[in-house]
Design a binder for these strands. Structure first.
Lengths: 158, 158
DNA sequence: TCCAACTGATTGAAGTTTCAACAACACCAT
DNA sequence: ATGGTGTTGTTGAAACTTCAATCAGTTGGA
């Protein structure tokens, strides 16, 4: 018979807890600022990322599934979001010839134009609220830290 | 006549861009993991934070506005969230005697119980996906970094 | 006292995301 | 070729958040 012993919870110590909460608040603040900035162009961060990702893709188009992956949205959410963006003329759907299930999301000229107009102030906000607030040293450490978070995720998903 | 000279956009260099995107993806991954974990208890991160915040408050209760501030939610959102949590018996509203506009959100025994049950695996998730994935050195740097983000926000809000 | 301005919290509608179910298609072994 | 299995993307309803309007109560000045 197997005896089940409940392993005691390893709580976070005071410093870890403080850092964790600081992270939560800081991250919230960052997206607040960026959202406020993008809202002046009628965009939110998720939509902006879609525009950026498409603008860098070959022929400015990507399959829905690839796009969803790249911007970290569920497919369902992306379907709805793209539908709205399509209504505004920012992207358009094209069926792709080689896989008839597939759909391309294609960045329109209007979408590209909006991206170009909104990018400068967005980048400025990222700089102000994050890059320059933090300073080069710790900024690079943040890069390493989140790289590890992602790497740990990839490892455990094998 | 004032001549308006458009200052050229200072784009992010390649490394800054890479770090920024790594951060966005990593942050998304963190909340994904935490949400998945809390969902097994029927909670999301926002609700969990409400439970924690109330559990630490005097008499396990807080005015709606204070609570909203502490968990970084709009008042309206908090009203709706607390209404749902009240339906589930996790918190209850009490009118406070000294300011008759005011409402206390009070953590119930049931709410406290759910917090106690969900805390261990939540903490374990935070450890796994963040604290231990990152390592002590960079973890502290993250603490400094986001502390600066918050400090910069406070300064510009004066 | 009375009024104007402000604060605390809620409301309901509109907008967005999530969730489960589904339809169409591709892939593959038989 | 056929049927099972997995994939792609969509759909509609439910759940949640946002937004503007609103109500009730407080505060301070005339």
């Amino acid at each position: 018979m197997t005896e089940t012993v409940e392993s005691p919870t390893r709580w976070l110590d005071a410093e870890q807890q403080r850092i964790w909460r600081t992270y939560l608040l800081g991250a919230a603040r960052i997206s607040e600022v960026l959202d406020a900035d993008l809202r002046t162009h009628g965009l939110d961060l998720a939509e902006y990322e879609i525009l950026v990702t498409l603008s860098e893709a070959e022929d400015r188009r990507l399959r829905m599934a690839e796009l969803a992956e790249a911007v970290h949205q569920s497919r369902s959410r992306l379907t709805h979001t793209v539908t709205r963006m399509e209504r505004r003329g920012l992207v358009e759907r094209e069926s792709c010839p080689d896989d008839r299930r597939g759909v391309w999301a294609h960045l329109t000229e209007a979408g590209m134009g909006l991206l170009r107009r909104s990018a400068p102030s967005h980048v400025e906000s990222v700089r102000r609220v994050f890059v320059e607030a933090v300073g080069p040293e710790d900024f690079r450490a943040v890069g390493r830290a989140f790289e590890r978070v992602l790497a740990a995720g990839r490892e455990s998903a094998d």
